[in-house]
Design a protein around this nucleic acid. Structure first.
Length: 426
RNA sequence: GUGGCUGUAGCUCAAUCGGUUAGAGCACCGGUCUGUGGCACCGGGGGUUGCGGGUUCAAUUCCCGUCAGCCACCCCA
């Protein structure tokens, strides 16, 4: 058996490529509706670009090596640092807000599993230079619009929404110390993926008090912004974040996505650089990992590029989206890609077959013909197998008189006409 | 990186208790068809049974290792 692709990498045969192209077409179509511009960067980057943000710990999961110039390089594991660098370099001259998207192929050296390979294509959409919550609503609207464009509804996919600032205020209000925050976030992030008792135990350990853990458990269970407001609206440190989140929901309602969004304070996002509203998209059946995740990262451009600009963005991978759509039969079949199959009654007509094919191609038609001498019946069999919608048949005597026969392969009907008339009718 | 399950033709699968030349359908190529496709019938190519080793008179079958795939963990693009 022939050696396959490397583990975690995919060969895209035409059928799979068609699926990938469909997904990317939808992404581009929707992003253009939101007036985003497409960009790209290098697939290979200096290792330091990622060290700076995540530390040496994550370096072990990068697809990195030393190049022939003795540089430590890595296949890009994410797009945000590249994006931040590019924006920072031209920060002063770019019209704000910057609305850019990209569809990079990303790499990570990890053992593959469902919905996760060593390589994937990920839509990245980011907005830079706008701190107000309208931008957050606009951003989530894009991700949801993509779901809708795929044919999914709010009963298929939901967005869970939270806010790091709100969560922090609530956790502090519950009585946890600042030092405990990151440990608490880690526990909250895992909630739902491990047994309740273990989660609870870890939470108590993180905050050092069962009373505080009780209070955290209490607000995590609230999934309605109004309930949260009733309970904590009087607390000044919390109320300001609730007001913002309320506006966020109001804007999403105005954008037409009220049914798709729900408050979920357990959404933290693993990445440390998020600073505000964060969200994740899930399939409601719970079969797949998160379809999409993103949020606000107002300090990252400062950290990476030395430019103080608020920013927010999301990523959506092709693997989970493809699995979801495929399982529901929602990827459109590839339409027949051949318009005309030109067939000659005998081998001597080969140059004429080529001339007709060339003329059709000059008219932007997709054209194929038999590259080896074949009986007419065989040629038509090939035409049918190729999914050609029409055959153009050159018969020796008729073609000498300037006529071709155009056969509709789907209907089984055919018509003879002067070649000129046929070409002019295109 | 850790653990569990699984590997036979391009795909889906078969092969008695370990038994001698590993089969079938689909797909592909061709023939019937000096001429207008899909159907039908017939034929053809395609396998180191993932790979390596062991046990045995004999291994697709049993054992070990390895590689790959799937699933979970870790982690989250």
């Amino acid at each position: 058996m022939a050696q396959g692709a490397l583990p975690g990498f995919r060969d895209f045969y035409p059928e799979q490529f068609a699926e990938r192209a469909y997904i990317m077409d939808v992404w581009r179509r929707v992003l253009r509706r939101y007036a985003f511009s497409e960009y790209d960067g290098p697939p290979l980057e200096p290792l330091d670009l990622y060290r700076k943000k995540s530390g040496d710990e994550l370096v072990g999961q990068l697809y990195s090596f030393t190049d022939k110039g003795d540089r430590e390089v890595t296949m890009r594991p994410e797009m945000t640092p590249t994006f931040a660098r590019m924006v920072a370099a031209r920060a002063n001259s770019l019209r704000k807000p910057v609305r850019w998207f990209s569809i990079p192929q990303l790499f990570r050296y990890e053992r593959q599993q469902k919905g996760r390979l060593r390589e994937h294509f990920q839509l990245n959409a980011d907005i830079v230079g706008e701190a107000s919550v309208t931008a957050d609503a606009e951003l989530l609207s894009i991700a949801l619009d993509i779901m809708r464009e795929f044919g999914l509804t709010s009963s298929d996919v939901r967005a869970g929404v939270s806010d790091r600032r709100l969560l922090q205020a609530l956790v502090l209000e519950a009585g946890a110390s600042e030092d405990a925050l990151s440990a608490v976030y880690a526990v909250i992030d895992k909630r739902g993926r491990e047994p309740v008792a273990i989660s609870r135990e870890k939470l108590e350990k993180a905050v050092g008090s069962s009373h505080v853990a009780d209070k955290i458990d209490e607000f995590l269970g609230i999934t309605d912004i109004d309930n949260l407001f009733q309970r904590y609206g009087a607390v000044e440190s919390i109320a300001q974040h609730l007001d913002r989140l309320r506006a966020y929901f109001q804007y999403l309602n105005a954008l037409g996505f009220a049914d798709w969004v729900k408050l979920d304070l357990s959404i933290v996002r693993g990445l440390a650089y998020y600073t505000g509203i964060v969200f994740e998209l899930f399939d409601t059946a719970g079969e797949y990992r998160a379809i999409c995740g993103g949020g606000r990262y107002d300090t990252l451009l400062e950290t990476l590029g030395g430019v103080d600009l608020p920013a927010l963005g999301f990523g959506m991978g092709d693997v989970v989206v493809g699995e979801l759509l495929r399982s529901r039969g929602m990827i459109p079949a590839t339409p027949p890609r051949t318009d005309y199959w030109v067939a000659g009654e005998e081998e001597a007509l080969t140059p004429q077959v080529m001339s007709v094919a060339a003329e059709l191609r000059r008219h932007d038609r997709s054209v194929e013909y038999s590259l080896k001498p074949q009986q007419l019946s065989r040629q038509l069999k090939s035409a049918a197998a190729a999914g050609a919608s029409h055959a153009v048949i050159l018969k020796t005597e008729r073609f000498a008189a300037g006529e071709v026969t155009v056969r509709n392969l789907e209907a089984g009907t055919e018509q003879s006409m002067p070649l000129e008339d046929f070409i002019n009718s295109l």
